[in-house]
C-alpha cells in the first residue's frame, strides 16, 4: 500500500490493542454500548410502562415491590460505520521544502483511523471532496478492504477549491446516519463556512475533525519579498513576509481558537496537527493515548 507500509501497519496494530483497553472502550470498539435499545442481555435502564410495550419486558419484581409498572430496557450491540472524509482541495497539495504534502499526511491519518475501525470489527469507508469529482468508497468490514481504500486515495490528486456549500448535502447523501465521521482538512478558508459544513454532518452522527497544516503555514518563516501563489484558487499575492509574519501568526491562532471553541460547543472533537509531527504520534494524541 502506498500510505500504510509494513511499519505503519505494525504501529497501528499496536495501537489497536491499546484502544481495546477499558478506558477507551466505547470509542471505537465494535462491542460498544449502543445508544439504541435492543435485545441484548445487557441492562440499560428502567422505563415506565407505556401502552404498546411488550409485557414480557415488564419487571415483575419491581411491580411486586412498588406496585408500579416498569419496563427493562436492554442495550443492543451494533456494528458502527466509520467514515474518513478528506478535503481534496488544492491547498491540501501544499508541502514546504522537505516535508510531505498535507494531502499525503491526511491520507495516512484517514487510513489509520479506517484500520483502527476495521480492527475493531467496524466498517470503514473513505470519501474525498473537492471541486473535482468526489471519490468515495462505502464502509466495509475487514482489513482486506484497506488496500482498496489506499488505492482510491493514491489515485486522487488534490486540486480545486473545497465546496463548503455543497459538501454537507453531498456528504450526507453518502454517509449513513448513526455512523462516525472523521473529517480531515486544512480548514483554510472562511471558518464559518467550514464550521457549518462540518457541523451539518453532526445530525445523528458522531463527528471528529482534524486540521492538518504545514509548518510553513504555521510559522510563515519566508524571507524576502515574495509572490505567493495559491494552490487552492491559483491567485497570487505579493507580500513582505517579515512585515506580515506577526499578523499572520495572530490570524492563524485566531482561526484555530475559533475552530476549537466552535467545535467544542458542538461536541465535535477537534485537533490541529502539523506535518512535521509523526502521523502516528498525532493519531495517538488525538485518541488521547499520548
Amino acid at each position: 500500500m502506498r500510505y500504510l507500509d509494513a511499519l505503519a501497519l505494525a504501529k497501528l496494530r499496536r495501537l489497536s490493542l491499546h484502544i481495546k483497553r477499558p478506558k477507551v472502550e466505547g470509542l471505537l470498539s465494535g462491542a460498544r454500548a449502543s445508544a439504541l435499545k435492543g435485545s441484548s442481555q445487557e441492562f440499560a435502564e428502567y422505563r415506565a410502562y407505556a401502552p404498546g410495550d411488550d409485557p414480557r419486558r415488564l419487571d415483575w419484581k419491581v411491580l411486586a415491590r412498588t406496585d408500579r409498572y416498569y419496563v427493562r430496557e436492554r442495550q443492543a450491540e451494533s456494528m458502527m460505520a466509520f467514515y474518513a472524509l478528506l478535503d481534496g482541495s488544492g491547498s491540501m497539495g501544499y508541502a514546504s521544502e522537505g516535508r510531505e504534502r498535507k494531502w499525503d499526511y491526511a491520507c495516512r491519518l484517514g487510513l489509520a483511523f479506517a484500520y483502527l475501525a476495521m480492527a475493531a470489527k467496524d466498517a470503514a469507508g473513505i470519501g474525498v471532496f473537492g471541486t473535482r469529482p468526489a471519490a468515495f468508497h462505502p464502509p466495509r468490514q475487514g482489513l482486506e478492504h484497506l488496500s482498496r481504500l489506499d488505492e482510491l486515495l493514491a489515485r486522487f490528486e488534490p486540486g480545486g477549491t473545497f465546496p463548503t456549500g455543497s459538501f454537507p448535502s453531498e456528504a450526507a447523501s453518502r454517509v449513513a446516519e448513526r455512523s462516525h465521521v472523521l473529517f480531515i482538512s486544512d480548514f483554510l478558508g472562511n471558518p464559518e463556512d467550514f464550521f457549518r459544513a462540518v457541523r451539518a454532518l453532526k445530525m445523528r452522527r458522531g463527528v471528529w475533525a482534524i486540521q492538518i497544516l504545514d509548518p510553513a503555514e504555521r510559522d510563515f518563516d519566508f524571507r524576502g519579498p515574495l509572490l505567493l501563489e495559491s494552490l487552492e484558487d491559483r491567485s497570487a499575492l505579493s507580500v513582505e513576509p517579515a512585515g506580515l509574519r506577526e499578523e499572520y501568526r495572530s490570524e492563524l491562532a485566531r482561526l484555530v481558537r475559533y475552530y476549537q471553541a466552535a467545535f467544542s460547543d458542538s461536541q465535535i472533537r477537534f485537533g490541529v496537527y502539523f506535518t512535521d509531527e509523526p502521523w502516528d504520534r498525532a493519531l495517538s494524541r488525538f485518541l488521547g493515548l499520548a
Binding site: 501544499y94 483554510l188 505567493l228 494552490l231 499575492l237 506580515l244 499578523e247
Partner: peptide, 19 residues
C-alpha cells in the same frame, strides 16, 4: 519577486488586511 507556491492565501489576506 520570487514566486512561491502556498496552500491557501486566506490567512495571508486576513493578515494583510490588518497590517
Amino acid at each position: 519577486l520570487r514566486r512561491v507556491p502556498f496552500g491557501d492565501l486566506y490567512l495571508v489576506r486576513q493578515a494583510l488586511s490588518r497590517a
